[in-house]
């Protein structure tokens, strides 16, 4: 465990807890894309298939349970909670799941480390995580109202993957094993997707104006 990975995991943890807290306290999911949240639940499900088979560390197991629990709780709140669901903007959050899931699945079937179920699912989860934010970014562009918590949520989510890239650089130089190129590419693509959001987020923060994304 190195500082970059720990910082990345903590940033990721804070991002999902910020979102869960926002939805739980103000009982609203305005500006949040259910599609993205469902894709994240799928990412964690396909990523953590080894949760009960391979024990790596207490930290690893606890964090996996937290990520699974929080992502499914967020989906439940937006879908089922009698108050929260009313603030869900389903007319604007129209990104089709299969436009993202199918290409990632095909890609994982074509490009992977080993052709085993767990390995293909793990690779699928890497590709899916890289693009799962798209429905959320599309929704932000459409609704143009980015409240602070949603802005912070997307920012933290991007920051966590950027920290993971630093972690892979560090591990590349300090550990005998290697970081597979699939991990590199999926992680870099994911971080690049946030790049323009980061640009507008810093602009709004620097000029102390409300965050606006160009249409």
């Amino acid at each position: 465990m190195n500082i970059f990975r720990l910082a990345g995991d903590m940033t990721h943890l804070v991002s999902v807890l910020v979102l869960l807290l926002k939805i739980h306290t103000i009982k609203s999911c305005a500006g949040i894309s259910l599609k993205t949240q469902e894709l994240y639940a799928l990412v964690f499900t396909t990523r953590y298939l080894d949760l009960f088979t391979d024990y790596i560390s207490l930290y690893n197991t606890v964090m996996k349970l937290i990520f699974l629990g929080s992502s499914f709780s967020i989906v439940w709140y937006i879908r089922r909670h009698k108050i929260v669901r009313r603030s869900y903007d389903k007319d604007q959050d129209t990104f089709r799941h299969y436009f993202i899931v199918l290409p990632c699945l095909v890609l994982a079937l074509l490009i992977h480390h080993k052709f085993t179920f767990k390995e293909v699912m793990w690779t699928f989860s890497l590709y899916l995580e890289a693009v799962a934010i798209l429905p959320q970014l599309v929704l932000l562009q459409r609704t143009r109202n980015i409240d602070n918590l949603t802005g912070q949520y997307v920012f933290l989510l991007g920051a966590y993957r950027a920290l993971y890239i630093l972690n892979w650089i560090y591990r590349h130089y300090t550990e005998p094993h290697y970081v597979h190129w699939i991990t590199w590419i999926a992680g870099i693509v994911q971080t690049l997707l946030y790049a323009d959001f980061f640009y507008y987020y810093f602009q709004s923060w620097k000029n102390n104006v409300k965050l606006q994304l160009p249409a």
Binding site: D9, I56, M63, K64, V179, H180
Partner: peptide, 10 residues
């Protein structure tokens, strides 16, 4: 061949 290192990551 060596195992990829990222299997212990989240």
């Amino acid at each position: 061949d060596e195992q990829p290192v990222t299997k212990d990551e989240l």
